[in-house]
Design a protein around this nucleic acid. Sequence first.
DNA 1: TTTGTTGATTGAATCGGTTCAAATCTACAC
DNA 2: GTGTAGATTTGAACCGATTCAATCAACAAA
Lengths: 352, 352
Amino acid sequence: MVKGTIRLADVAKAAGVSQGTASNVFSRPDVVREEVREHVLETARQLGYAGPSLTGRLLRAGKVNAIGVAAAEPLAYFFDDPWARALLAAIAQVCDASGTGLALVSAKDRQKLDWNIKSALVDGFILLCVEGGEKLVQLTRERQLPFIALALNDDDPSVPSVSVDNAGGAAIAARHLAELGHRRIGVLSTEFSYDHVGPVGIGEIERAVYSTSRDRATGYWQALETFGIRREDVPVYETDNQKASVEAGLEYLFSKPEPPTAILAMSDYIALLTLSWLQARGLSVPADVSIIGFDGVPEGGMVEPGLTTMAQPFARIAERAVRAVLDDAMPVEREMIDVTLVVRGSTAPPKQ
Amino acid sequence: MVKGTIRLADVAKAAGVSQGTASNVFSRPDVVREEVREHVLETARQLGYAGPSLTGRLLRAGKVNAIGVAAAEPLAYFFDDPWARALLAAIAQVCDASGTGLALVSAKDRQKLDWNIKSALVDGFILLCVEGGEKLVQLTRERQLPFIALALNDDDPSVPSVSVDNAGGAAIAARHLAELGHRRIGVLSTEFSYDHVGPVGIGEIERAVYSTSRDRATGYWQALETFGIRREDVPVYETDNQKASVEAGLEYLFSKPEPPTAILAMSDYIALLTLSWLQARGLSVPADVSIIGFDGVPEGGMVEPGLTTMAQPFARIAERAVRAVLDDAMPVEREMIDVTLVVRGSTAPPKQ
DNA sequence: TTTGTTGATTGAATCGGTTCAAATCTACAC
DNA sequence: GTGTAGATTTGAACCGATTCAATCAACAAA
């Protein structure tokens, strides 16, 4: 199988037609007379021609017909992280419908990320900004392609982005627990600032680098205060969304003299880890402790008890994002999407 | 931001150098004199030049630096199916290490799949042949790019492929149950033939279209026969790896006068569904029923009790596959990789 | 002064197609 | 026999870069 050595021009010559006609045989078969078409096709087959090379075509057309999804994480992140997975499944669905390809681009270290973004063959980018958002945005800007940032941890209004209503959603979550009667509530947060885990104070949260976590914390506080729970009385433990730090946070919260009767988790992944930690310790959910998560990943519906959570409308987000890069219709200002409360088995009134 | 309108030639002209030099400024900066380089770079900046267009470069280089992973399934399959996910995470890891991009290509209907494969910008393909394998192989062949088939359901030795040792692995799984003392064992299989679910007989299995399922069944039988269990006495229910048919299969197996004390599931996904079906019916695993799966997906380690299973070495498979397409080192004949028994909590000796 | 050598730059060819205006070829009516 | 509309086909320009043989400048050695 000699590869790539046969060009359209060769086929044209062998078939005795002009290159223009040969090209038409493949890309606009209707304009060429049937018997000529058949003949060219037959010649191509005999020569082992693999069909018009994509790169040649690409060069003129300028459209790749694929979008890139980028994150400042190792590639495996897309398949490991439940949130990324749920989002990508939704994005994939939209792409499927519109016949668009999907390329995954990512890298943990700056160098490679840079190169990968520069050299990705795509018509635009969807950025997963959970971490290293600015870097990502900056690199993508240089490509001068349409892009849209998701889960942007940054208030810069000049970045086209759509995000969920973190503060509003968090408020609903907290209100749900308070209305059930919970008064001792602990928070397991996602990151507020780079490379830090552990208990955090109010001031630190207000000055947080990552707006997502900050907004969610603020939402929690506001809702709880309407129930007379002061923010000073709500312990917050910052995790990096990994097992080790979440468990440390749980140790911390439940070793207090008055352990919480409910946990506000800033991600479903944290909530899921909390659930299994509690169950392993013989505590019953929701009888002993209630848990509410954030994100609405499918896994939350598959555990026992089901996880109560604030669900992101992944399909809507995906739809909006894909449309933005495909139609070059980037939002001029930050767009906001609501999250909805999904009540399952992991929340109930506190004991007695 | 006027896009795409500035070419390397424009920059060259504006900077007063030849296009060749301008090109070198970007792709081989070391060969051009520093002050010239600076000047060209500066001109480029002022013009808003986005850097050498990939397509132009591509046309000459001929390498995309990305591999495609293809399946005859909707795109979301890559993120929904646990096996695909585990495999892709492993593939992603290898790609990351070698700085290769990853493009996902798929489609449920033949038409689109055809087009998607034809137009994917990749240097080669890894084929996930769980279903519609021949179609996939055939379409890919036409692209004349290196490719390798995984989980190929077909005995054709001319297809470069690596697969796990299905018969051997299945035998180990069955032996494990038999050694624990189980004698009444039910099988929940993956598909033997297109579009069929329900109880299947020995003859049908021997004539099965899909070799993966057939080989696993054969492995089960051989191991069990060394323990005096005849294949006629092992009920097999064919599922399509979906919730509905698995539950139907369980109804079938457990409504028999002598229900099984152990289940051989041909995929972890089936095993996981079995686990929650049994638990929902108040049956304890492994006290009342033992379960052993196949694949070794991460989810199997996260349920309670942990799932005993035959684990595929995803990392090894991924390594081999990526190397094959990148180095154009397709195996000349079908390659086989062993699976290993991972014993967790879902298997134990039968009651009394 | 001439020759050699080294390093930087140029210009043109090339990659593999698509596209479009112009040329050619029907077929049919007048 | 001429005219014309419509269908095909042709040929050349173009897409945006890279590459390489050839040229040029500058300076050291003979």
